[in-house]
Design a protein around this nucleic acid. Structure first.
Lengths: 346, 346
DNA sequence: TCTTAGCACTCCTCTGGTTAGAGTGCTAAG
DNA sequence: CTTAGCACTCTAACCAGAGGAGTGCTAAGA
C-alpha cells in the first residue's frame, strides 16, 4: 500500500503551486526542472503515479500531465499552504475607505465586496446582516406638504428605514406626535424579528380611536417586519463578476453563461452562503460546494462582526485552481478590519 | 443613378426583418421564397445590388448574403417600421409592481430596469434623477443612544436622505430642536443644486455660537450637496446584462468581456446616456453611439417624468440587429407608465 | 425596358487525415 | 531505490479537399 511521505508532499505542493500559476496540466519534467527537489523526472513520475493512486492528483487523459483533484486541494489547504499576510499598511487605507462613506450597512457591504474583489481579482460575495440581528429604537412621523407624511424608523447602530405615504386628510402635528409616542412606547427595544404582523395588529386594536393608525398599518409592515425588510436586508452584494472571465477555465462561453446567470439570482447565492457554517474562515473546495454548477470552483468564506456580534458573511468565489494563500489572507484581513472599524465608538 | 422605390423599400424591410430573426446574412432566394413579392430571386438580386450601392445593405464577403448597414437600419427605423403596441392589460400589472414597493426613486429605477429587460430580453439601463431636480424640504435631527444622532433630510416628493454621526457630547433635545429649526428656516425650499458648501459655510458663520453645527457641517455636506449626493443619485441601474449572452453576435468571448467590463463602469454609462438628447424617444444606431465599443449595438432611449418634470432616462441596449418594433414599444410604454404612476397623488 | 433562367465563379465552412510534441509507463542498468 | 532510455498514447494544430450557399453576368423572353 502506498503511503504519503515528505517527498510526496513536496511534489504535491509543487504540482499545485505550478498548476495555480499556469492552469496547464503539470508534467514530471517541469517539476524536476523548476523545483529543486534533487530527483530525476522519472522518480517524480513514479511518485506522481502514487499520488494519483492516493487520489490527490488526476490525469485529464493518458499522456497529459497531472492536475490536482478536489482531495488534493483539500490536503494542500489543510496541510501544505504557506500562510501569507496582507501588509499592515493596507489597513489604514482600507479603514479610510470605510470612514469616508456613510456608515451604514449597505455601504459597508458594498465597500467590502469592492475591496475583496480588487484585492484578489476573483469574484466577491458579501451578505449583509439579516434584520433579526437588530432592535427597534425610534420611530418618527414627519409631515410633508399636503397629506403626505414620512415614516422614519431608526434601528440599532443608527440604521434607518423610511417610507412616504399619503393620508386621507392632512394630519395635525399633535396627532402625529401622539401616535408616534404611542408606537414608540410599545415597540421600544424590541428585536425586529419579534415585530410581527401580530404585534402590529394588537397595536391597531388598542389604537382604534386613532384613525390614522389604520392608514399607517400597511406602511409600518413594510418598514418594520421581516417581509418588508427582506427587500433591503439580507441582500447579497456581488463584485468583480467579470473577473471570472480572466480565468482560463472560463474560456468556454457556456460556462460563463451559467455563472453570470447564477450571479443574477440573489436567492441562490444567499442560500449558498447560509449553508456554509459560519465560524471563522472556511475553505470549500469544488464538489464540496452545495451547488452542482460550482463544482469547478472554490469558496473562501468568513463571517464578520458589527459591534462584536457576528452578523454576516463574506466570500471569495474563484476556480478551484485559485491562489489560496492570497485569497485566504485577503478574506481574513477584511473580516478583521471590518470588525475593528465597526467596533469603534465613532 | 439608382434611386429608392417602393419595391426596394419592400426588399430592404424584408431583409432587415429576416436578419433580425436569424442573424445570418440573407440571400436573394430566401427573400423571394419567404416573402410574397412576386418577383424572382434574380430580380431581387439586382435590387439588392442597388441597395448595396445606396449604402443600405452590405456583404460580409462576396458569395454571402446581405446584411443591413447602419444606414439601412436608420432608414428602417425612420420609415419602414411597423409600430407595435404593448397590450394595455400589462399596464395594470406593471402599475402594481410599482405600488407594492416603497415609492422611492431607488425603487422606481430598479423596478423599471427589471421590467424593461424582462419585456425586451435585452439589457436595460435606467438613470435615476440627478439631485439638481429637487428641493430641500425639511431637516430633522433625531437623537439616538449616547452621543449619536441621525440627520434626516426630506426632499421634495418624499425622498429621504439620512446619515448618522457621533457628537462630542450628548446633545439635549432642546439644542437639537433649536439648531434644526434654524437650519430649516434657512434652507426651506432651496433647490439642492443651490445648496453649496458656500451656503453652508455662511450658515456656519451665523451659527458659530452653536458648537454642534461645526460638528454637523461635514455630514450636512454629504447629505445635502451635489458631491455627497452624487454617490446615491444620478446612479445608473442596469439589468439583464447576461441577456447579451443569448445574442449570437456575442458568441465571441472577447466581445462579451469588453461589454461586461463596460457595464461595471457606471460613469461611462452615465456619460453615454447624458450625451443623448432627451426629448421623447430616440433610437441610436451602431456607429451613432458615442462609444467605439458599442458600434455593433443600438440604443433605444426615452426620458421619464416624475410629477410631470422630465428627470431621468431609460434605455435598452441590444445588438444593432435588435427587434426595433418590440423594443420601441416597450420603452415608450414604460416611460408612459412611470410618468402616469408618478403623477398620481397617492 | 424590365424580368428571369442559367451558369460560372467565389468564398466560407466543415471534414478527415496527418503530424509534431508533450508526457507517460515500463524496463533494465547503476 | 533511482534513473536513463524507449516505445507508446493522446491531443492540438495544420492542411487539403469537398460541399454549398450565394453572387454577378449574360442572354433570352415578355
Amino acid at each position: 500500500m502506498v503511503e504519503m511521505n515528505e517527498r510526496k508532499k513536496g511534489i504535491l505542493k509543487a504540482v499545485i503551486n505550478e498548476y495555480i500559476l499556469t492552469a496547464e496540466p503539470i508534467g514530471s519534467r517541469t517539476i524536476s526542472k523548476k523545483y529543486k527537489l534533487d530527483v530525476s523526472s522519472a522518480t517524480i513520475r513514479n511518485e506522481m503515479a502514487d499520488l494519483e493512486d492516493l487520489g490527490y492528483l488526476q490525469q485529464p487523459h493518458t499522456s497529459a500531465g497531472r492536475i490536482p483533484s478536489d482531495k488534493g486541494y483539500r490536503f494542500y489547504v489543510d496541510s501544505l499552504i504557506d500562510v501569507e499576510r496582507i501588509p499592515e499598511s493596507f489597513e489604514e487605507m482600507i479603514r479610510k475607505k470605510y470612514l469616508e462613506r456613510k456608515k451604514e450597512v449597505q455601504n459597508i457591504v458594498q465597500v467590502t465586496s469592492q475591496m475583496l474583489s480588487q484585492l484578489t481579482r476573483y469574484t466577491a460575495l458579501v451578505a449583509s446582516p439579516s434584520s433579526t440581528d437588530y432592535y427597534f429604537q425610534h420611530l418618527q412621523l414627519v409631515p410633508l406638504e399636503g397629506k403626505k407624511i414620512t415614516i422614519i424608523v431608526v434601528i440599532s447602530s443608527g440604521l434607518v428605514q423610511h417610507q412616504t405615504l399619503t393620508l386621507q386628510h392632512r394630519p395635525s402635528r399633535e396627532e402625529l406626535g401622539n401616535i408616534s409616542r404611542l408606537i414608540n412606547d410599545r415597540l421600544q427595544g424590541l428585536p425586529l424579528g419579534k415585530i410581527s404582523s401580530e404585534v402590529l395588529g394588537q397595536l391597531e386594536r388598542e389604537l382604534k380611536d386613532h384613525s390614522i393608525f389604520r392608514e399607517l398599518y400597511r406602511s409600518l409592515l413594510t418598514v418594520l417586519t421581516e417581509e418588508g425588510l427582506s427587500q433591503e436586508w439580507g441582500k447579497i452584494h456581488l463584485d468583480g463578476a467579470t473577473n471570472i472571465l480572466e480565468q482560463p477555465e472560463f474560456s468556454d462561453l457556456e460556462k460563463v453563461k451559467v455563472f453570470l446567470k447564477l450571479f443574477e439570482q440573489e436567492d441562490i447565492l444567499r442560500q449558498l452562503l447560509n449553508r456554509i457554517p459560519a465560524e471563522g474562515l472556511q475553505v470549500v473546495i469544488g464538489g464540496e460546494i452545495p451547488l452542482q454548477e460550482m463544482k469547478d470552483c472554490s469558496l473562501v468564506v468568513a463571517d464578520y462582526s458589527i459591534q462584536d456580534t457576528s452578523v454576516g458573511k463574506m466570500a471569495i468565489l474563484g476556480p478551484t485552481r485559485m491562489n489560496y494563500p492570497k485569497v485566504i489572507a485577503a478574506v481574513n484581513f477584511m473580516a478583521e478590519v471590518i470588525s475593528k472599524v465597526m467596533r469603534e465608538e465613532d
